[in-house]
Computed example of a mutant assay.
Amino acid sequence: MTTADVIVIGGGIAGISAAARIAERGMTVVVLEGEDQLGYHSTGRSAAIFIRNYGNATLRALNAAAAPFMEAPEGVSETSLLSPRGELLVATEDEMPALDKYAAGSSGLDRLTPDEAVDLVPILRREAIAGAVIERDAQDIDVDRMLSGFAKMLRRAGGEIRTGAQVRRMRHGDGLWKVETRRDRLAAPVVVNAAGAWAADVAHLAGAKPIPLQALRRSAAILPAPDGHDVSAWPLFGSAAENWYAKPEAGKLMVSPADEDEVDPHDAWADDMVLAEGLDRYERAVTVPLTRVETSWAGLRTFANDRTPLVGFDAWEPGFFWLAGQGGYGVQTAPALAALTAALVAGEAPALAPDVVTALDPSRLMV
């Protein structure tokens, strides 16, 4: 039996960053990751973009809290995790209400004319654009460097990571959680449920009251750069109606249908029909025909029904901590949520505003 102060279930960016911050406080931490590598599912399939205006008001507060760390990631990297990109949203006439709604709740956006949008992304179909906005401060995230940096921080602080360690049984007694994997038995007074799309399954194993969490598939494909175009300086660009987006990726274009199909947790793959429909929407917005798809994949984005993460102790199960429901915001909010998790686990006052902490509390969805 391995004993620790905290067991973290899930080795994506949420679990690893939270474990690192907890271990910094002198607590013994063991991370259990079911796959053979860290960040295999959602973290490793992220669009890797930091958009300050992405998400609801609570998520935007988390984005703002995470930004200073992303720019100066002390203990994780010697240089910024961010690099310039920008996010350009374009709207047809029918999509203008969606664009106006997004702009009304955002800051740091500039309105663009159709000609200005085409100047930034020359393949956009000028006659289809009724309006456009750009967030110039949107930036690429070096997700690999971020994940590996937090893992190194965790190990430096004495934390342990066990891969291939899918949790099979859990029970609580005598003030301890007893957790079993195929190879190991562990015990700790606190368990952090950072299992991503499998967070509801982990809660079920723990006997916790269920909180509705839904995994949604998000697909993407890599396309060759349009002939004659260097895409490296282009912003991420997409529809204001969120039915497609494209992002420069290593000299090519990553295009997503921005799909959100409800699925059970699994090792996700792209649905050919969904991908084809999304690529058609993209192709109708640009002047260059799609020639071929080089590769495609999918990831899972898991949401609570109010699209706000669950971060906090369970109201009924002692020592059971929720760190789940990050949806498509998990990478960019990880620094803020890791700091909050560590503070709550250690019994410290969180740095986040009280209303943000309350909005994240899982008890809001417990009945």
Rank of each mutant, 00 (worst) to 15 (best):
A215G: 04
L213T: 00
R168P: 01
A221R: 05
G207E: 09
F150N: 13
S232P: 09
A220N: 12
A203H: 04
H172I: 03
W177R: 00
K252R: 15
D174Q: 13
R185H: 14
T181H: 09
A221E: 07
M254T: 09
H204T: 15
P212K: 13
E249P: 08
L186A: 06
A215S: 14
L186G: 02
N193H: 07
A208W: 10
G251F: 10
A194H: 00
L213E: 01
G175F: 04
L213Q: 09
D201F: 10
D140C: 00
S256F: 01
R155Q: 14
P248K: 00
K152N: 12
S256P: 08
A203M: 04
R162W: 12
K252I: 00
A203P: 03
W177Y: 02
F150I: 04
D142M: 05
D227N: 13
Y245P: 10
M153S: 14
E249D: 15
A165L: 06
M153Q: 15
G158D: 04
L236N: 11
R162L: 15
H229A: 11
R171V: 09
K178Y: 14
G164K: 05
N193S: 08
D140P: 06
T181N: 09
A225E: 12
D174N: 15
D144F: 11
P224K: 02
S148Y: 13
W244R: 09
A151I: 11
G238C: 05
Q166M: 11
R169Q: 14
D142L: 05
V231S: 04
V179G: 03
R162K: 13
G164Q: 05
R182L: 14
S239E: 10
I222Y: 07
G175W: 06
V202F: 08
G196N: 02
Y245D: 07
D144Y: 12
E242S: 13
A240H: 07
A151G: 06
A188R: 03
A246C: 07
D142Y: 08
K247Y: 10
A203L: 06
R168H: 12
R217I: 10
I161K: 03
D201H: 14
R218P: 05
P212L: 12
A195H: 04
V190Y: 03
D140T: 08
A208P: 08
I211P: 05
L186W: 04
A233S: 14
D184P: 02
Y245F: 15
R168T: 13
R217C: 02
L223E: 09
A197E: 01
R155C: 06
A233P: 06
A165R: 03
K209S: 13
S239T: 02
D174V: 03
W234S: 00
R155K: 14
Q166K: 12
R155M: 12
A240V: 01
M146N: 09
A151E: 13
V179C: 05
R169V: 09
G196F: 07
A151L: 07
S256I: 00
A225H: 12
W234K: 01
M254I: 09
